[in-house]
Amino acid sequence: MEARSPSIAAIGVIGRHNNPLHISLFDATGPGYEHARDKLEYSFMLNSCLDIFEARMPNKTIGHDFGLLHALDERIAMYGWLLNTGVKLVIVVDMEGRPALSPEAGKTAILGLRNSDLTPAFQALQTAYISLLRNPFYVPDDHDPRATKGGASLQIASPRFIKEVERVGKAWYPGTTAI
C-alpha cells in the first residue's frame, strides 16, 4: 500500500452560540481515496465537537487550545480552538488524507500527530477570522442566531475569508511551522 500522510479533511468555524459559520471540506487525494467528502456527514462530525467544547469549557480557564477533541476512527480526528469571542475553530484531520510525498512524510501517518502540529493552521485561521472582523462590512451580530432571530443565513460569505480558509486547509501538513 502506498504511504499516506495526514491532511486536513474539513475546517469548521462555529459561532458563539454554536451555530455553524463556515464549513470547508477538503477531499482526500490519491488513488483509492477518490470519493468526495459528504457535507452532511462532516456537519454531523463538527456538530458533535460542540459537546466536548461544552464539557471542557467550564474547566478551561486559560488558553484557547482545546487540543484533540476526539478521534472517530483511525483516520478521522478532530482538534479545536476557542477564540476570545467564543467562536470555535475545529479542524478535522484525515490521517490518510493525501499520498505521502516523501518517505519521511509517510511516517507521520504511522507516528501520528502532536497537538502542536495543528497550531500553525489554527493561528492562520485565527488571523483570517480577525481580518474578517476588521472588515467593516462584516457585522458579527448578523451571524448570531440570538441577534437575528432566525431567517437569514448566518454563514460567513466573505470570499476572502473563504479563500483563506481554503488555502490554510490545503497548505497544512504535519510539521509545518507557518502557513
Binding site: L68, A71, D73, E74, A77, V93, M95, T108, A109, I110, L111, G112, L113, R114, N115, S116, D117, P174
Partner: peptide, 10 residues
Amino acid sequence: AADRTPPFHQ
C-alpha cells in the same frame, strides 16, 4: 505528550 501519536491511539 510531545511525541507524535496517532490520535486514535488515545
